[in-house]
Design a protein around this nucleic acid. Sequence first.
DNA 1: TTGACTTTGTTGCAATCGCAACGATAATGG
DNA 2: CCATTATCGTTGCGATTGCAACAAAGTCAA
Lengths: 145, 145
Amino acid sequence: MSCFDLEEFLPYQLAVLADQVSRGFSALYRQRYGLSVAEWRVVAHLGQSGMVSVREIHRRAMLGKSQVSRAASKLERNGYITKAANPADGRLVSLALTERGKAMLADLAPKAMAYEREILTALDGGTEFRASVRQLLELEGQFGR
Amino acid sequence: MSCFDLEEFLPYQLAVLADQVSRGFSALYRQRYGLSVAEWRVVAHLGQSGMVSVREIHRRAMLGKSQVSRAASKLERNGYITKAANPADGRLVSLALTERGKAMLADLAPKAMAYEREILTALDGGTEFRASVRQLLELEGQFGR
DNA sequence: TTGACTTTGTTGCAATCGCAACGATAATGG
DNA sequence: CCATTATCGTTGCGATTGCAACAAAGTCAA
C-alpha cells in the first residue's frame, strides 16, 4: 500500500500526546470540583492576573469567547468567581476569584506542578523537550498561520 | 496572587501546540476533500493496512468507535472507501480504500510528509524532539493511566 | 443444542461546541 | 453633537461529540 505511516506522523502523535497528558490532570480537577478544561483555564488564569476581562482570557488562554463566557457563568453560579461590569468600560466584564475560588486554586496548583514534574522527570531530556515545545509554539504562530 | 503560570504549564502548552500543528495540515485536506480529522485518520490508516475492521482502527487511531463508524459511513457515501461484512466473522466490517480513496491518499500523503519535514527542520533539536515525543507516548500509556 | 455471556458496530440522546447574529457600550470623525 | 463604525460579551442554532443502550453475531460450557 502507501508508505505513509500515521502513527509516525507528528501532528497525530502530538494530538494523542496532548490528549493523554491533559486527560491525566483534568481527571483530577473534574472529579474534585467538577471543572471542565475551559473552566480550569479560566480559574488558573485568574490566579495570576487577579482581575481580567473575558476578552483577555479569550485571547491568552486559547479559548473561544463563547467558551469563556459560558465557563465564567458556570463558575459564578458555583461561587468560584465573581462577574462585575468594569466601571471604566461598560463593555468589559471583570472576572475575579472568590475566596472559595482561591481556595480551590490553592489546592489544585501544587498538584498541577507536581503532575508536570512527574512527567518531566520521567522523561530523559526534559529540559530540551520543554525548550522545543516553547520554540514550536513561537514558530507556529508565524509560518503555519 | 498564586505562583502558578498556566502558559508555562506543560499540559496546556501541549494542547495548544497539538491544536496549532494539527490545524495547519487539517486545513489542507479539509478544503481539498472535505475530510474531518477522524476521516483523515481512517483513510491514512487504511493506506497502510489495506483492509481492516472498525474495531482495529478504533484501537490504533485513538478514535471512539462511534467516530470511526460515522467517519466510515461518510467516507463510503462519498466513494472513498467500501464497507463489507467479513465472511469469517459477521460482526466485523471490513473497510478498504476505493480507487478514488487511494488517489486521494496518494495526493495527500506526500503533502503530509512535507508538512512534517517543514516543522522538524525549522526546529533546532528535531531528532531529539521526536524521540521525546515517542518516549512520552510510551510512558503515558502506563503511569498516567 | 441450548442458554448465558462476550464482542462488534450502529444509533439515539443529551451535552458540548463553534459560528454568526445580536444588543450594549465605546471610539471615531465630521 | 450626532452618525457611523468598532469592540465586547451573550445567546440561538446547527453540527459534532461521547456515552450508553441496543441488535447482531460469535464463543463457550453444560
